[in-house]
Design a protein around this nucleic acid. Structure first.
Lengths: 114, 114
DNA sequence: TGTATATATAAGCAAATCGTTATATACTAA
DNA sequence: TTAGTATATAACGATTTGCTTATATATACA
């Protein structure tokens, strides 16, 4: 059986990153969707730099990856990441946050991009 | 099916608490053992106040409970806590830390208490 | 009672965190 | 090329965190 366990130090680092309302919800949304920054800005009613800085932390340890599509940069879960299985287990315990994206669509407040 | 899901805000609070090397390892050890403060002091080679303060945070949101036995206070996981199922899932992904207790026994450096 | 041990708590400090505003960069379209 | 949009980054400040040292409290035991 090849079971790779995450070591405690790395696990603590990952959990600390997930231990923030905004980042945790971001990750849960990204579980099922690709998103660009502007969507998160709307969902969290936060400033663009604040959102970018949260994403940067997730990206710095490889939890998410980016893909430019024209003017926009879409983020998604990096399933290749060594921590992915661990993160997946944690996220699986949380209630879906997909309704937050749906609300944007319905309100029509979604910016041009998405 | 009665499935109680933890809400995102509370989950983030719990994960933030677990997102510290010392507290995460403490919780993993407590998964299978009751421990008193002096054991943690030895295991983490930390000061007694530092350990007490970490425990206090875990106790404040009810993740652990205490039980005085004479001179000592033993801590254990509070399985009655609303977050317990969530925490259990997280801890289950981590490698056992029981060897840390065993090392204390073998080294004989364990203080009188334990 | 007095002393030792185990633990908790308070106060203070350095570092980390998370927001802000200002600015830089990259792409699109006129 | 110029203007507009999306995003990243830098600089700064307030708050939080996690240690330290000092002290208080509770129990055990002589």
């Amino acid at each position: 059986m090849l079971k790779t366990t995450i070591d405690m130090d790395r696990a603590a680092v990952v959990l600390k990153l997930l231990g923030d309302r905004t980042r945790l919800t971001m990750m849960k949304i990204l579980e099922n969707n690709d998103c660009c920054v502007c969507e998160f800005v709307e969902i969290f009613e936060a400033s663009q730099p604040s959102i970018s800085q949260h994403i940067r932390k997730l990206r710095d340890i490889g939890l998410v990856k980016e893909e430019r599509r024209g003017q926009w940069i879409f983020y998604s879960i990096n399933t290749e990441n060594e921590y992915y299985p661990f993160v997946q287990h944690v996220l699986a315990q949380l209630p879906s946050q997909d309704h937050k994206l749906k609300e944007l669509e319905e309100k029509g407040t979604r910016i041009s991009c998405c």
